[in-house]
Amino acid sequence: MNHAPYIAVEGPIGAGKTTLASMLADELQLPLVKEIVEENPFLDKFYQDMDDWSFQLEMFFLCNRYKQLEDAVIPKLTQGQSIISDYHIYKNLIFSERTLKGIKRDKYRHIYHVLTDDLPKPNLILYIRADLEVLLERIAKRGRSFEEDISADYLQQLIQDYDAAMTSLAEREPSTTIITINGNEVDFVANPEHFGQIVHRVKECLSQ
């Protein structure tokens, strides 16, 4: 792995991406880039009516993540500084392929590739995979009002979409290392030993 690793933490809604990314950033003394979620003005509307508001929602996320990468990630990597993020911009395709249809999906795909194809890609991804019951419990525990309308069917489909996306990323970006974390069994918040094991695996990858 190169001298300035770009680490991304990924997983479906409620997996604990931001928590783990924040913990690793503190442990490894790396700058952290956190995605903008609650600031998206279309979230409430989207979970109430996905068909009407999906394009606006996805475009807001795409433009904001692109701006974050342009302002916060690229300059640091250019200067040889490592960085950690609580998302991979590829997640925009994971969500949009499920929520958009027809011409809107085609337009979105085109805009996505125009904006992101030449952006730096993470060379280490921590993929937190968890079952539906675990995700629902964590979503309920954090109590975000706009997530109250998330359906179990949508979340279950998202789990499957993420599994497929990680397989696709492994094929599309062979230089990227993907570490899968079993979110059903690994509690990196409450169990220091579990977190220590993750840190050890990350350090092993960074030293290669």
Rank of each mutant, 00 (worst) to 15 (best):
G143C: 04
I128K: 03
D187P: 01
I125W: 00
N191P: 00
T167A: 14
A165H: 04
L155Q: 09
N191C: 07
S145A: 15
D149T: 11
I178V: 13
K121I: 12
T180F: 08
L136N: 03
L115W: 08
R142D: 06
T177S: 14
E173A: 09
A165D: 06
R172Q: 14
I128C: 03
I178G: 07
S145L: 10
P120L: 01
T116D: 12
R144I: 05
E133P: 06
P122H: 08
T180S: 12
K141M: 11
A190V: 01
P192V: 02
V114S: 12
I150K: 01
I181D: 06
P174K: 02
L115F: 14
F188I: 04
L169G: 08
I178Y: 04
D161H: 09
P122Q: 06
I128E: 10
E147K: 00
L119T: 14
T180V: 13
I178A: 04
T167S: 13
G143A: 11
Q156G: 15
H113D: 09
I128H: 02
E133K: 12
Q160A: 13
A170V: 01
P174L: 03
D131S: 10
S145V: 13
H113T: 06
E173M: 10
N184C: 10
P122I: 12
S151T: 15
T177R: 10
N123S: 11
H113F: 10
Q156P: 02
S168D: 15
R142N: 05
N191I: 01
N191V: 07
R172S: 13
I125Q: 09
N182D: 15
Y162H: 12
R129G: 10
K141W: 08
A170C: 04
R172E: 15
R142L: 05
S175T: 14
L169H: 10
L135A: 00
E133R: 11
R138W: 05
Q157V: 08
L132F: 05
N191A: 03
V189M: 09
E147D: 03
R144N: 13
G183H: 03
L124N: 06
Q157D: 14
K141I: 08
I128Y: 00
A130F: 00
R138T: 07
S168F: 09
A190F: 04
D117V: 07
Y154C: 05
T180C: 08
Q157I: 11
D149M: 13
L135E: 01
S145E: 15
P122N: 07
D163A: 08
S145K: 11
S175A: 15
